[in-house]
Design a protein around this nucleic acid. Structure first.
Lengths: 344, 344
DNA sequence: GTGAAAGCGCTAACAC
DNA sequence: GTGTTAGCGCTTTCAC
């Protein structure tokens, strides 16, 4: 079990280590017969290049860092969201033979910037995939920028010229969901807003307003409640909304965690869904299809988005060529049991 | 933004690079005044040691690998479980300044062994935390063993002399839950078993049987249904159990995902919980407290377990000294709304 | 097409 | 206490 190195392979194949290196890195200018000899030696010895040595010599690593807001710090149990991002990043890593480093961090801490710089300068990842809402915080983005490490922002809310990003059409698809509810006959459609720090989520609120106006329904602040992306805030907002004199017949929450809270609160109040109340969310986390009733929501292509992001950072993609590149992966409405015709 | 290296620090502080290395690694035998000089230079230059160089020179990395079963491969949405493990591993990493690599893998694939060896020999993690059920699969454990990398098995079901492990008291606490249900007057307590590959989960079934006998209740296969740890299997088993001629008044599922399925199935069948049916689970995933009714379950100290495991692997812990060490972190019953007195 | 030599930035072993 | 020297296992540069 002694570690086998590039030297052992070179010896066995009867070539220089440089040639082995060429074969391993699929570089051109190697005679086919030489390549075969080397490949055979590699297989025989079960050789695996040492990443650390590779990184050190080449000044680039085969690691992608996924950085996101630390849910443990706020007791926001948005695990579905995180798992999906990881899934996408892992898929990308697998396809290009990278490994994934995860690094949740608490953006309220004064020294997040330093923490991220430590991560980057120590582990030297090939790039950072930065999740929302961190992706729209100048402090964070700048900290990563100063290290010179490529970075892809996920759902940054607003793109910026020099930094890669992947987003979905939050605003447009939220408008579509609102029109769908209006089409079911709902005239009083409430909206529960999310964490104001999260710009992409804020775009959903704009989409809701677009949808109302496109459906000829007047916007009213009486039908808006301020949540913070958490399950608990969804519950609290629901109680508030349903106690108003002219309660809504549909509630559209800016994310699924809050929508799950809506469903629970309505359950407790003995309200029939979708008979008396329609509920819609955004994200399509795993939980959405486990609720009772199952949740009508918007399938955010989070797995896909993160995968694209991680791929942008990997070797195959020329960083400079793609600098300033922005990708949009469209979301789509997923109709389930929680929405139906307006009552009466 | 030129990379600052140990040489720059040594120059600025007017010492040799070895002394800088000593300070960085908190080695003894450095005069206090020298240490201060070096620390000042480090702060001034904002120096961060290059992990790759460190790993290469020292043949040990500052990376911990967390390896678990890939839920995406089976559509088992056990994200709560994964997030908790990650949380524990991340806490340990933070405290000893390591980074965390995650590596889900599909144990049904023929070449998992090779895949794990690639991971280990390329990234050279300081150690691997191996989650259940992978932790009780000889094929997997052996693959890791041959690399010589330290490994901690989580809930291995059965300990083995040479390999570190962290587990909880699955059997004992499951017996306790069963006695608790019996104490509420339930005489027909059903059990939904989990994935048979998962030995720790199998221990819960043994505990259930212990609890029955300790409560003077006869065990009956009529009250056992075979699940596979998934939400869907919990639903299916519930329908089967409740259709029997002498249906149970309580259902104890071997994990929370299945218990959540029980609750949904019972809801659909119009059964009142806990009035007509008590439901208990195991794990205490986040979802448990979001269900309606909230789920009585067993709080598996998964975060703590994984944290302990990762810590065992980190520098502070002398590997040889601890070889063959097994830790038990006890679980505890968490009573919520889903359990109550037996009907009638 | 292939190889020799010179590092990448750090730690290990030993000298002083 | 502190410094010197020699690598760790690769990639890079440039020669052939």
């Amino acid at each position: 079990m002694a570690k086998v190195t590039i030297n052992n392979v070179a010896d066995l194949a009867g070539v220089s280590i440089k040639t082995v290196s060429r074969v391993v890195n699929r570089e051109p200018n190697v005679r086919e017969s030489t390549r075969e000899k080397v490949d055979k030696a590699i297989a025989k010895l079960n050789y695996r290049p040492n990443l650390s040595a590779r990184n050190l010599a080449s000044r680039r690593s085969h690691l992608i860092g996924l950085v996101y807001d630390d849910p443990a710090a706020y007791e926001l149990p948005s695990s579905g969201y995180i798992i999906k991002m990881q899934q996408g990043a892992l898929a990308a890593c697998r396809s290009v033979n990278y490994e994934l480093l995860i690094h949740p961090c608490d953006y309220r801490k004064k020294d997040v910037g330093a923490e991220l710089r430590s991560l980057i300068e120590e582990a030297r990842p090939a790039g950072i995939v930065l999740a929302a809402p961190l992706s729209n915080m100048p402090k964070i983005v700048r900290a990563i920028e100063t290290t010179g490490t490529p970075c892809v922002r996920l759902s940054p809310g607003k793109t910026s010229a020099k930094i890669l990003s992947v987003a979905t059409n939050d605003r447009e698809v939220s408008a579509e969901m609102t029109r769908y509810l209006a089409g079911l006959g709902h005239a009083r459609i409430a909206f529960i807003t999310g964490d104001p720090e999260h710009k992409a989520v804020a775009n959903r609120f704009l989409g809701y307003q677009d949808g109302l106006s496109e459906s000829g329904i007047e916007f009213s602040t009486q039908l808006v409640a301020a949540g913070n992306n958490s399950f608990g805030s969804g519950e609290a907002c629901t109680e508030k909304l349903l106690e108003r004199k002219n309660p809504p017949t549909a509630i559209f929450a800016a994310n699924d965690d809050m929508a799950a809270g809506v469903i629970r609160a309505a359950h407790r109040m003995g309200i029939d869904m979708p008979g008396q109340l329609s509920v819609a969310g955004f994200d399509d986390i795993v939980l959405s299809s486990q609720l009772d009733p199952t949740l009508t929501t918007i399938r955010q292509p989070l797995v896909r988005m993160t995968e694209r992001g991680a791929l942008m950072l990997s070797k195959g993609n020329d960083q400079d060529k793609d600098a300033g590149h922005h990708e949009i992966v469209p979301a789509e409405i997923q109709i389930r049991e929680s929405t139906g015709p307006a009552p009466g």
